[in-house]
């Protein structure tokens, strides 16, 4: 189990990286933490001719907050994000979901952006990004564009990223008072990819009823997906037990989950309902609380 040969490029700044990506197009893969890519390369499920290692690119490791947005650069490690007081305070869902990713040594190398760009339909962080109504900041030699998380994931391990482009950051709006978030999952073994996971954000309106709600699922389709029927069911409700149950019951509507050795499609639909109920209950409780206790 050894990778095929490739050319290794280690750009020092973003322009150099973008030039290299432009030159090699679809032949190139970006290497950040490598905790998924190198695994695929070892199994020769990925054999890029060129690997562009962005770990030495200056300026990509910033984790910053301004104007109500939290921005994580392409080489911000998952462990850094998970332990960041800024993330804990302003995007606790990202921290909560992040703590479920593999194991500490993997997270200390793996990056948040890398997980998003890798677009594993079972992974936690893309799902959290989706539930947080996050954005993906994409750069190429011809400029920068921002893609809504809703539009970024297009299929299993595929995104709307074009050859020559790379993700330079992800951004999430900060979670404000009155909004509660939660991430729950079922994994067959601690640290494994979940069979199914649910990320939820719930906002309490001033009238005490549930306002904006976003529910995103992993392990429930070919990409991280929203449970829109469940969102609709909860929005405007009183957020009580019955409302949550009604929303949870609708969480599997329209899902076409993948099936693998860890669970059938039916089981994933079942888990989508169960976990949506649990995630919503927690998120609603947290929305009612002063702080988002994680």
């Amino acid at each position: 189990m050894k990778p095929a040969a490739f050319a290794y490029l280690a750009p020092r700044d973003l322009d150099e990286a973008l030039d290299q990506l432009a030159e090699h197009g679809a032949d190139a893969r970006v290497l950040a933490g490598g905790q998924s890519l190198v695994r695929l390369m070892n199994a020769r499920l990925a054999s890029p001719a060129v690997v562009v290692d962005i770990n030495r690119v200056a300026g990509l490791d910033a984790l910053e907050r301004h104007n109500g947005t939290l921005r994580l650069g392409a080489t911000v490690r998952q462990r850094t994000s998970e332990l960041s007081p800024d993330v804990a305070a302003h995007a606790p869902l990202l921290a909560e979901a992040g703590a479920h990713v593999a194991h500490a040594p993997v997270r200390s190398r793996g990056t948040v952006v890398g997980s998003v760009a890798f677009a594993d339909p079972s992974a936690e962080l893309p799902t959290a990004l989706l539930a947080l109504d996050g954005r993906v900041v994409v750069r190429s030699r011809s400029g920068e564009r921002t893609v809504e998380a809703d539009d970024f994931f297009t299929g299993p391990f595929t995104t709307s990223l074009a050859p020559g482009e790379m993700v330079v950051a992800v951004e999430v709006p900060v979670t404000t008072a009155g909004t509660g978030t939660a991430f729950v999952e079922v994994a067959r073994r601690h640290g494994d990819l979940p069979v199914c996971g649910v990320a939820a954000t719930v906002t309490r309106g001033d009238d005490g009823r549930v306002g904006a709600t976003r529910i995103a699922l992993c392990g429930a389709g070919e990409r991280p997906v929203r449970a829109r029927a469940a969102e609709d069911a909860l929005t405007g409700s009183d957020g009580g037990t019955d409302a949550v149950a009604e929303a949870a019951a609708r969480a599997s509507e329209g899902l076409s989950p993948i099936a693998d050795c860890h669970g059938s499609a039916d089981f994933r639909r079942h888990l989508a309902r169960v976990l949506t109920g649990r995630a919503l209950r927690t998120a609603i409780d947290r929305a009612a609380g002063e702080a988002n206790d994680v």
Partner: peptide, 28 residues
């Protein structure tokens, strides 16, 4: 709780690595 070889109907082995063939970790 975990360990099992699974084969598809075509006989393909669906559990060829430690990501599918699961053994307990410290957490279990």
């Amino acid at each position: 709780l975990m360990e099992e070889y699974r084969y598809g109907e075509d006989g393909a082995l669906d559990t060829p690595t430690f990501r599918e063939y699961l053994m307990p970790s410290m957490h279990e």
